[in-house]
Design a protein around this nucleic acid. Sequence first.
DNA 1: TTTTGATAGTATCATTTAGAACTAAAACAT
DNA 2: ATGTTTTAGTTCTAAATGATACTATCAAAA
Lengths: 173, 173
Amino acid sequence: MNTKAGTPISFAPVEQKIDRVCARVTAPDVPQTRQHVVLSHLIRHIQTAQAARSNAFLREYELNAVSFTALMMLFSSPECALNPSELADATGESRANVTRICDELVSKQLLTRTPNAEDRRRVDLRLALEGDELVQRFLPQMRDRVHNVFNVLSQDERDTLENLLKRVLTELG
Amino acid sequence: MNTKAGTPISFAPVEQKIDRVCARVTAPDVPQTRQHVVLSHLIRHIQTAQAARSNAFLREYELNAVSFTALMMLFSSPECALNPSELADATGESRANVTRICDELVSKQLLTRTPNAEDRRRVDLRLALEGDELVQRFLPQMRDRVHNVFNVLSQDERDTLENLLKRVLTELG
DNA sequence: TTTTGATAGTATCATTTAGAACTAAAACAT
DNA sequence: ATGTTTTAGTTCTAAATGATACTATCAAAA
């Protein structure tokens, strides 16, 4: 990923190429397909750019976007606790990766791992005090440096975007 | 919030957690920030799910989503040729990664790599006949199995989504 | 019960990736 | 011309990730 500061992310060349794909393909529904491809690539480019921003900021603190998301999901859970598989669902990461991430976070004393008494297959992940403080300290900066790109949209537009994206995600589920 | 119409089942727990984050944080613009975070996570989950779909399909043919995108970007370029750095921009991958991907694709004889006569720093990547055929053969299947999730939206809604996403991406650039 | 299947978590392995260092060539400045 | 800076591409290294296989536990069926 090209994370170099100052490198403009220009989508126009990508879209030109998608247009040329369509020009070369014969199918009954080319314009619609073209738009589907455009939308897919838009989402991919936005997600890539956002991840780059998050990581660039968090790297100064020896964290990454996925670890921070994990901490935030714990921060927001009842009693700041989740099972690994719940955390996997919440973050979108594989369970294997959640195990590794939690290894790291435990070693940094940002969360604790304790066996669950009722179901001995389970493990309880619980945010440590330090992890809680870290989330509270970083959230405002994440807001200013990552999430506020959506301020280019009006409130109505953001509502619309939220609605549309949710419907797409439902279709993918 | 999980009762909100259209909220995908898999995302509802995520949104609940975001709500709890907001409940625990004191800031002047919490509702807006909440929505920004929701939108970021929606985009991330959609992109993850789409990549998983693409890869699941392409793996049968010993390809992955990034390689296929690279082939498609070449397919759509004038004379089916690009430089590695242009390909990096078009796919969103790092130049280092483009080098590796092209190694693979060359070894599969899907594209060729030739030194550029005018600028000897440059390299010309050109889609081979086999690569061209592969793209034409796979595009319809990619459409049916990956891109057509956007069919849940009406044409107007897709236009709106495209417009909104483009503005967000511009802001990230 | 016993067995069969499902679930939770982890360990292992191969793949994918970004970042930094490096080489070569072109562009630019003096 | 000469030296400096920028650009293109690759190589190398370390990190991140997913797929798979495995163990332990629970649940359900026989």
